[in-house]
Amino acid sequence: MEEALEWDWLGLGRRIYPWDWVYHRHLGQALRLLEEGGAVDAISEALEEVPFEEWEAAVNFALKRHQDEARHFLGWVATMHHDDGWRFNAARHLWENGLLTESIRQRVMELEADPEARAILAEL
């Protein structure tokens, strides 16, 4: 049963980002966890080694199909993730989709060390 479910989600990874097959399993696993309301740290872990382009594709797909779950995940990434690039891009996605709250923006700015990124965040 578990293998059948994993295979179905592998196909979703292929549809979302068909150019690089290496990470399709990770994309599928992350999106399955997201849809099932899985823990945000588990979703993050599934996407940890995924390159930026695939991460972007997964986030864009999630925001279109599972906005509440994606908003929750991105809010966590923006305020809790250890990587400043992840935090910045999560805040950017929230802003681009009209989902960035002032409290999340402020928290991301507090955590941001790069003056250029802080300036961009201040303008969001």
Rank of each mutant, 00 (worst) to 15 (best):
M1C: 09
E3R: 14
W9N: 05
G11S: 09
G11E: 07
L12F: 05
Y17G: 01
P18T: 10
D20F: 00
D20N: 03
W21I: 09
V22H: 04
Y23R: 07
H24W: 12
H26Y: 12
G28Q: 10
Q29H: 08
A30I: 06
R32Q: 13
L33W: 05
A39T: 09
A39E: 11
V40R: 14
V40C: 15
V40M: 14
L47M: 15
E48A: 15
E49D: 14
E49Y: 05
E53F: 01
E53Y: 00
E54L: 11
E54P: 06
W55Y: 13
A57E: 11
A58R: 01
A58Q: 06
V59N: 04
F61C: 01
L63P: 08
K64P: 00
H66M: 06
E69H: 07
A70I: 04
H72W: 15
L74I: 13
V77T: 09
H81R: 06
D83A: 14
D84N: 12
G85A: 01
F88V: 04
N89Q: 08
L94N: 07
L94A: 08
W95L: 14
E96H: 12
L99Q: 02
T101Y: 01
E102C: 01
E102T: 04
S103W: 08
I104F: 00
Q106C: 03
V108E: 12
M109W: 00
E110W: 02
P115G: 15
E116A: 13
A117C: 13
R118K: 15
R118T: 02
A119F: 01
A119G: 05
A119K: 05
L121K: 10
E123M: 11
L124V: 05
L124S: 00
